[in-house]
Design a protein around this nucleic acid. Structure first.
Lengths: 215, 215
DNA sequence: TAGATTGTTAATCGATTAACAATC
DNA sequence: TAGATTGTTAATCGATTAACAATC
């Protein structure tokens, strides 16, 4: 088990693991003790073999005929994703999306703990959001010196994103969760993970247009 | 060109197309007239052959040595994604994320036009958001009869998502953009496209934990 | 015991990448 | 003309799926 822990996994696998956690947590509410890959697969409408393969990357060992011990499985996935701890994060850009993310307490269960919020709009500076005072971006330097914050969340408009990215890296941030539509340029050792909502919408609108033509 | 238009594309390709549009629009601001796959690829740090393959699904024809005519290429991708028109949509669940999506005017450029907003929280009903009055979910029936709204955006908490999904489908919605962490159950002819932010965060936190171990 | 499920190795499938002729 | 780029066919790569022995 232990020796497998630090192996990496493919991107599709990493993306499915949180969905398994969600299913498992719901089963836990029903006091389920053991769960099989088949059960998880049916709930998510995917193949059971895929679930088994995915789970194996976390190092969990199941019991033939019975399945996986529920609590152990949840913890195993959480440890693999590093969600058993919380990593401190900055968020920059307090627009609609930024506000929504800061206010969404659940990210704490996903390993993310936002400790400071920044925006350069003078009307916003000084106001509080979810208990955190909105600071001007200059203040990043003060934090950078004292704290060990490795994650930066960028929810600024596209025009500001690259500059903010650069400043975050200068201040010691190692991973960026980017919600702007920009393709950020950064040194190779920096992890950039982008959420482009337009990507998802493209899949939806294209499929819908296909459907209309079909008929 | 025309005969290729209605062919479908792979999911990875569909997801890259919006990123090309973004790059192309920025080039347009610089009055560029022609663009090559190489240029786009360099900007996004991917392979040029992949860009060429992706663009070919839209039916665009380029000029050897020169590349693609910029305006024609933008329109070609937009038509393929159906972003040249706007599809009407309902949004249900006016929490932080729902508010952010309703207020983000740019989705109109991505083929999405939110025409009505619903929430069952009595404190929210009647208030206006981005010019739209928040309605109780019951009112969906009135809209369903009169309008031809094919897209539903679900930004409710997980507990309400499946019920909302069912109601949307009853009222004629054909495609659902789901932001709840639930795996929605729906008939096969309904398009379900989910954005699970936890998926993206899983990739980020896992990679970051790998990086720390490395050192 | 018989059956269901795990874990692993092999086969398949599909997306990415390479190769190269055609061409402005 | 020479060189860069397109468009297409073939090769490679990696993820998914199938097969099956091990086992509670």
């Amino acid at each position: 088990m232990k020796d497998k822990k630090n192996t990496s996994a493919s991107l599709p696998t990493l993306r499915r693991l949180p969905r398994y956690i969600h299913v498992l947590k719901r089963l836990k509410l029903k006091n389920t003790e053991y769960v099989s890959a088949t059960t998880i697969a049916e709930e998510l409408e995917i193949e059971s073999i895929q679930v088994r393969k995915d789970l194996s990357v976390t190092g969990i060992v199941g019991k033939p005929k019975i399945g996986f011990e529920l609590d152990e499985l949840i913890i195993s996935i959480q440890e693999f994703l590093n969600w058993n701890k919380q990593e401190d994060a900055y968020l920059i850009g307090v627009g609609g999306l930024g506000k929504a993310i800061v206010s969404y307490e659940n990210f704490k269960n996903y390993g993310l703990n936002i400790v400071a919020v920044f925006d350069n709009n003078k009307k916003k500076i000084g106001k509080k959001i979810n208990g955190l005072e909105i600071l001007p971006l200059d203040k990043l330097y003060d934090f950078g010196e004292r704290k060990n914050v490795k994650i930066g969340v960028i929810t600024t408009p596209a025009s500001a994103a690259q500059e903010v990215c650069d400043k975050l890296i200068i201040n010691g941030v190692k991973a960026i969760w980017n919600f702007s539509p920009v393709s950020l340029k950064a040194p190779k050792d920096i992890i950039i993970e982008s959420v482009h909502l337009s990507q998802s919408l493209a899949v939806l609108t294209h499929k819908l247009s296909m459907k209309v033509i079909e008929k």
